[in-house]
Design a protein around this nucleic acid. Structure first.
Length: 474
RNA sequence: UCCCCAGUAGCUCAGUUGGUCAGAGCAUCCGACUGUUAAUCGGAGGGUCGUAGGUUCAAGUCCUACCUGGGGAGCCA
């Protein structure tokens, strides 16, 4: 870690001084060979780049990574990144001396450094502060073959180097917005009296659909990675009223599209006494809240991503609603050959969404197109009380929700119709035997939501380390 | 699983009807430059053209198979 070199002049004494200062800054014990050298550095504050403008005209120490180096004979520049922002270190040869000047020449892309100098504004580049360097410690060297360049790269190459790609300013902006969305989710539900419930990731087979990841589980046979926490969420709603889950979800389908991951994060609220109407109202309030929170607090990051903020500012409840039958009629008018009873395909969703600049609800699908647990529509028993919320700008289905079937006999009949193993649902059916209750909930795909807010076309870019069919590393 | 597309230098790509086709830009290394912002200028190194067969006097180039990946469909969030 403490990997620094002397300049060509062999400035050993100066080097030991600098080394001492670095160890002091890092707050770790000095090696004994430097113990005779002491220097009080308490007057030089160690700051993050985002805080630099509070220290203009004063000496500071910044610990950061070098993103770019430029040299011009007698003056040289190193751009610095520390995760909070960027700054520019300026080396003027006649000011820094030969030894430090020589050490500058050792800086390469992604060298980690501790740089001390005066913070000051740079009239030539408003917004990026300069550090007039008086001292430089190389903490970790970086070979000259660092793979990520400030040039175009293919997506495959970038994902192979995801551990480096995350260092770029664009990726930082995405992760900051993702974090803002996650925090907003917790705030939204906390303020409304929801209880967060963490549901199991290892489950017995309860979906019985293909696309489950299996793993050995002691003497119990196979366990499966959770595809949803919903069934557990329903049990929790009967216990606590209003709950939500927030966790990873796994789908082993061999999906190869920009909207799919094998591991993604899903938020699943479940609310006692909500019907389908209240469910949709909660969804649109929720989505509006998330989008407006990002607009309010993350303008710089949206700008970094060149996102059209005006499109996000328009995202206000209520959202347009189409019942399934009207949606089918609409897409047929636009040339689709989808018939009543079919599920809506990706092309159909695009046809529906193109007329709106807000997310669009499509509600009450045919029973056959949806899951067994959705409540039969009393006004049209061919359909169930459910909704999909489609994101604008072609980002696809962001939410799937429904009122749950609370009638024991109807639920049993649906499980039989689907050919599902009744014994797997014994505890789930108990929820209808012991104090059944009207309830509804939905699942929001975090990555799809963040991709839409960021305007990133592929969701693999909005999760730090995506898991896809052909990608298990890094 | 199905349909479409692509594999040429570290990266992004060009390479015409088969015949100086082993190329460019960037990156790297060396040199020049006192304020650069993807700096600029000069020079250098770097490739079994995805793999294996085949056609031909001659194959990145045409044919076949395979491998790998991408995009889309389905499934869904």
């Amino acid at each position: 870690m403490y990997h620094w070199k002397l300049g060509p002049q062999g400035d050993a004494d100066a080097a030991s001084h600098r080394s001492t200062r670095l160890f002091g800054i890092l707050g770790v014990a000095r090696p004994p060979r430097h113990s005779s050298v002491t220097r009080d550095m308490s007057t030089v504050p160690s700051v993050r780049i985002a805080e630099l403008n509070a220290y203009l005209g004063r000496p500071v120490t910044v610990r950061a990574w070098v993103t770019h180096v430029r040299s011009s004979g007698k003056v040289a520049f190193a751009t610095l990144r520390d995760g909070t922002g960027t700054a520019q270190a300026v080396f003027v040869k006649h000011q820094v001396g030969d030894a430090l000047w020589a050490r500058f020449a050792e800086l390469t892309t992604e060298t980690s450094v501790a740089i001390t100098g005066e913070a000051r504004e740079n009239p030539r580049a408003p917004g990026v502060l300069d550090i007039g360097v008086s001292d430089l410690q190389i903490v970790g060297t970086s070979p000259s073959d660092y793979p990520i360049q400030p040039k175009e790269h293919g997506i495959d190459f970038l994902l192979d180097h995801r551990h480096f790609w995350l260092r770029s300013s664009r990726q930082r902006a995405i992760m900051v917005i993702r974090n803002e969305v996650e925090q907003a989710i917790h705030d939204f539900f906390y303020e409304r009296g929801f209880l967060r419930v963490d549901t199991p990731i290892l489950t017995a087979a309860i979906g019985e659909r293909s696309g489950l990841f299996a793993t050995e589980y002691f003497e119990e046979g196979n366990a499966y990675l959770a595809q949803t926490g919903q069934l557990y969420g329903e049990a929790a709603a009967a216990a606590f009223g209003k709950i939500y889950t927030f966790g990873p979800t796994f789908r082993a389908e061999k999906s190869k599209t920009r909207r799919h991951l094998t591991e993604f994060w899903m938020i699943e609220p479940e609310v006692a006494w909500n019907d389908s109407e209240a469910n949709m109202k909660l969804q649109e309030e929720f989505v509006e809240f998330l989008v407006q929170r990002v607009v309010e607090r993350r303008k710089p990051e949206l700008a970094e991503l060149e996102r059209d903020v005006a499109k996000l500012e328009r995202i206000r409840a209520p959202f347009p609603r189409l019942n399934y039958s009207d949606a089918v009629a609409l897409v047929q008018k636009k040339g689709s050959d989808t018939k009543w009873g079919d599920d809506l395909g990706a092309e159909d969703e695009a046809l529906i969404v193109e007329d709106y600049d807000k997310p669009v609800f499509v509600f009450n699908y045919p029973k056959e197109a949806k899951a067994f647990y959705m409540k039969e529509n009393p006004d049209d028993p061919r359909t169930v009380l459910c909704d999909d919320l489609l994101a604008p700008e072609g980002f696809g289905e962001m939410i799937g929700g429904s009122q749950r079937e609370d009638d024991y006999d109807k639920l049993v009949a649906r499980i039989k119709e689907e050919g599902l193993p009744m014994e797997a649902y014994d505890w789930y059916l108990d929820l209808r035997r012991y104090g059944t209750f009207t309830h509804a909930g939905f699942g929001l795909g975090l990555e799809r939501t963040v991709a839409w807010i960021c305007g990133i076309p592929h969701i693999r870019e909005v999760i730090a380390f995506p898991r896809m069919m052909h990608r298990l590393r890094p």
